[in-house]
Amino acid sequence: MVEIKVEHIHPQLRELLSFATSKQKVEGIYQTYIQTDGRRLYGFMLEEDVIGCIGIELLGQNRCEIKHLAVMPNHRGKGIGSKMIRYIKDVHALSVIFAVTDIEAVNFYEKCGFKITSLGEKYPGIVRFRCILKV
């Protein structure tokens, strides 16, 4: 894992972030990570390739919110997402990690030990979930 702080976004990182948000928002989101003190963006490397990323917002009192988490499709199901969560937990000595996600990622967070609560239909036809892990 490496913290990403460079001014220009790597093409693989751009693709990863587009899995976690819309393609139109990637550049702005990336700049927020680069320019905001409480935000951190980490890349999971395999040789020279960025195959996963996790972006967090540190909230004080050993807490953070996972803002973005993505793994390249051909590397999913290999434990990379959970390794990234363990990494940020250890590096930042976190006691609480939370995320808000959609139905597609709920099982992943549940397998990682997060408690899941439905937030209901946040947008028309789209149910969102709060995921909380107390370490």
Results as ranks from 00 to 15, higher is better:
Met1Thr: 13
Met1Asp: 04
Val2Ala: 09
Glu3Val: 11
Ile4Thr: 04
Lys5Val: 05
Val6Gln: 11
Val6Tyr: 00
His8Ala: 04
His8Cys: 06
Ile9Trp: 01
Ile9Arg: 02
His10Lys: 07
His10Gln: 08
Pro11Gly: 07
Leu13Gln: 08
Leu13Cys: 06
Arg14Trp: 00
Arg14Val: 01
Glu15Thr: 15
Leu17Tyr: 00
Phe19Ser: 04
Phe19Lys: 04
Ala20Asp: 08
Ala20Glu: 07
Thr21Pro: 02
Ser22Leu: 09
Lys23Val: 07
Lys23His: 05
Gln24Tyr: 08
Lys25Ile: 02
Val26His: 03
Glu27Gly: 05
Ile29Ser: 01
Gln31Leu: 13
Thr32Arg: 15
Tyr33Met: 08
Ile34Met: 02
Gln35Asp: 13
Gln35Tyr: 10
Asp37Ile: 07
Gly38Trp: 01
Arg39Ile: 02
Leu41Lys: 07
Phe44Gln: 01
Met45Thr: 08
Leu46Asn: 12
Leu46Met: 09
Glu48Asp: 15
Glu48Thr: 14
Glu48Ser: 14
Asp49Trp: 02
Asp49Ala: 13
Val50Met: 13
Val50Asn: 06
Val50Arg: 09
Ile51Thr: 04
Ile51Pro: 04
Gly52Pro: 13
Cys53Asn: 14
Cys53Lys: 11
Cys53Leu: 13
Cys53Tyr: 06
Ile54Gly: 09
Ile54Asp: 06
Gly55Leu: 09
Ile56Glu: 00
Glu57Thr: 13
Leu58Cys: 14
Leu59Gly: 12
Leu59Asn: 15
Asn62Ala: 15
Arg63Val: 11
Cys64Lys: 02
Glu65Asn: 15
Glu65Val: 14
Glu65Tyr: 06
Leu69Ile: 08
Val71Gly: 02
Met72Gln: 12
Pro73His: 06
Asn74Trp: 12
His75Cys: 04
Arg76Thr: 02
Arg76Cys: 06
Gly79Gln: 03
Gly81Asn: 02
Gly81Leu: 01
Gly81Cys: 02
Tyr87Cys: 10
Tyr87Ser: 07
Ile88Ser: 05
Ile88Tyr: 03
His92Tyr: 15
His92Lys: 15
His92Ser: 14
His92Arg: 15
Ala93Thr: 15
Leu94Ile: 14
Leu94Ser: 13
Phe98Asp: 03
Phe98Met: 04
Val100Asn: 01
Thr101Phe: 03
Asp102Phe: 06
Asp102Ser: 11
Asp102Arg: 10
Ile103Trp: 00
Ile103Val: 14
Ala105Leu: 04
Val106Glu: 00
Asn107Trp: 01
Asn107Lys: 12
Glu110Ser: 05
Lys111His: 14
Cys112Gln: 03
Cys112Val: 02
Gly113Gln: 09
Gly113Trp: 01
Lys115Val: 10
Lys115Met: 03
Ile116Met: 08
Thr117Ile: 03
Ser118Ile: 03
Glu121Asp: 09
Glu121Met: 09
Glu121Leu: 08
Glu121Asn: 08
Lys122Gly: 05
Pro124Asn: 14
Gly125Pro: 12
Gly125Ser: 14
Gly125Thr: 14
Ile126Arg: 14
Val127Pro: 00
Val127Lys: 11
Val127Tyr: 07
Arg128Cys: 06
Phe129Gly: 06
Phe129Leu: 01
Cys131Gly: 08
Ile132Leu: 09
Ile132Gly: 05
Ile132Asp: 07
Leu133Phe: 08
Leu133Met: 12
Lys134Trp: 00
